[in-house]
Design a protein around this nucleic acid. Structure first.
Lengths: 123, 123
DNA sequence: TGAACAGTTGAACAAGCGTTCATATATATT
DNA sequence: AATATATATGAACGCTTGTTCAACTGTTCA
């Protein structure tokens, strides 16, 4: 159900803006949706995970490969891969002792590219 | 300058994957670029800031308006607006006592929309 | 000038997060 | 069965972060 307009009890200035505030309130997506969105971006908000995703966008790799590539411990990489797995951003397949990881989402690249545009504009 | 291929000293399996690892290494963007990208997503990784950005995408609003809209203290909103300002995501203008904030980046909506696609796919 | 209002800022606190270390699991090899 | 390799996991540790509280700045109006 849509959010209903309701009496404002804030600053004086907001009383004047009542119409606008209520209009924005109606247009806002569901609380839960915005929360999920923040959770997704939180996952992107770590350079180790960004690097992992970027690497996996180039090629399927095993945990050990990624650790060498990023010059980090295998444990640290494994922990981060779990986060990425739980966010449905990567998938894995086992081949003997080796577990290969790959991207599980084709939007990642587009999201990153949009982000890069902003980053590069700041110069 | 591009990253150079270098001898692998990791797990046995990575020695086998040496060619791939070095290929990915060459294709990775600069360390600093990936760091900046993570910093940007870190800003998006908080539901309060997501809500503020979403609201400002609908209409220019003053600090007090946002506080009422999100049912939070004005101080908390002001702190978050500072973060958004420092990331060049919002701008402000003063009109008497009131400071109005608005979006300062047209990519935000596109980044959010891409994120929403992922979020909605998980169902 | 002084009171009221809108917003900002710094310190403090709890909660969350990323890495490390030690250990556990799973598979392959001998 | 015992060993080695590849990965996963839990606890612990320091660091970061979001909110609150109190104090401060800046503007308007009487």
């Amino acid at each position: 159900m849509a959010n209903k307009a309701r009496p404002i009890e804030g600053c004086d200035c907001t009383v004047i803006h009542e119409v606008i505030v209520n209009l924005v309130r109606e247009k806002m997506p569901q609380e839960e949706t915005l929360y999920d969105l923040a959770e997704l971006f939180k996952v992107f908000g770590d350079s180790t995970r960004i690097k992992i995703l970027w690497a996996l966008d180039e090629a399927e790799m095993c945990v050990c490969d990624i650790a060498v590539l990023l010059n980090m411990t295998q444990s640290a990489i494994s922990h981060q891969l779990r986060v990425l797995r739980q966010s449905n951003l990567v998938k894995n397949r086992r081949e003997g002792k080796v577990v290969y990881y790959s991207l599980d989402d084709e939007h990642v690249r587009q999201i990153f590219n949009q982000g890069l545009i902003h980053v590069n504009e700041e110069k």
